[in-house]
Design a protein around this nucleic acid. Structure first.
Lengths: 141, 141
DNA sequence: TTTAATGTAACCGTTGACATTACAACGAAA
DNA sequence: TTTCGTTGTAATGTCAACGGTTACATTAAA
């Protein structure tokens, strides 16, 4: 089971907008050709990022542009913007048997540990900003 | 997107075997009634846990029993035993455009951070043993 | 008014999960 | 050694989510 590629697509999209946005008009078609997906997929991504207040997208004339500063956008912000994980990361079997001592207490015993693991993942994503990625990218260019 | 409930089912199954195993014969049917799933689902879970060397399952006469000590089984061991995540947790869009400076370098820029996030999650799972869960459960009983 | 884009709905095919049925293989006990 | 309860596993069905794609109304600037 994997976390949807919407996430890496969104990161890729933002990098393109922030790095190439001054040089090119960032249309869904342009970005789609960098990511190698259908332009509609990018429009959906742009729509999510816009709703999160990260970028601005112009209907009609076209083009996406930064709103937030790159050092104020973490991977976690992008992860939530595209709704990678809805609530809990771990799926839990429903209706454990309350007649059984294990079934009755499984949530009490397990939930906090699962939440900790999810928090560890998300904290790691919070520690990386788009600006960090741009720095690394500029070294490579 | 969520991590398959096979994981929490497996944890539940092991708790049942380790806590109730001395008192009852732990058949797939018995466990299934605690977890509230089909017995075949439990048999598949038992099969995975057996392959991981965590428990023993007797064909014919029936019943599952511990092999490893509870303090030597981490949540991570269970997570890998039931194959929650195959390799990378994050899905990556395939074929980013190598003609584009962003597409060409997106992996170099992003991969290590995704690996770090996944490692943070998995390390958290490594820090909890089945014995920890049993302790907490015994308090509640 | 034309043109090039966005915004979105609709539909499709694929994949993986979980449920369930069915039955062969097994092993202990009668 | 036959019976009986159980495991092991294949096959099938249903369902949800994803990503791909087409289509087209809407938008804004030239």
């Amino acid at each position: 089971m994997k976390i949807t590629s919407r996430f890496t697509v969104a990161v890729h999209t933002l990098l393109a907008i922030y790095v190439l946005g001054k040089e090119y008009k960032m249309t869904s078609e342009f970005i789609a050709s960098s990511v190698s997906v259908n332009p509609v997929v990018i429009r959906r991504t742009l729509s999510s990022l816009k709703a999160a207040g990260i970028i601005d997208v112009k209907a009609g004339s076209g083009g996406a542009a930064p709103v937030k500063d790159a050092d104020e956008i973490t991977l976690y912000d992008i992860y939530t913007a595209v709704d990678c994980v809805d609530g809990d990361l771990f799926n839990f079997h429903e209706n454990p048997n309350p007649e059984c001592p294990v079934g009755k207490n499984i949530h009490a015993v397990l939930d906090s540990h699962l939440a900790d693991a999810q928090a560890a993942l998300e904290n790691e994503l919070k520690s990386v900003t788009l600006a960090d990625l741009m720095k690394r990218l500029n070294v490579l260019l």
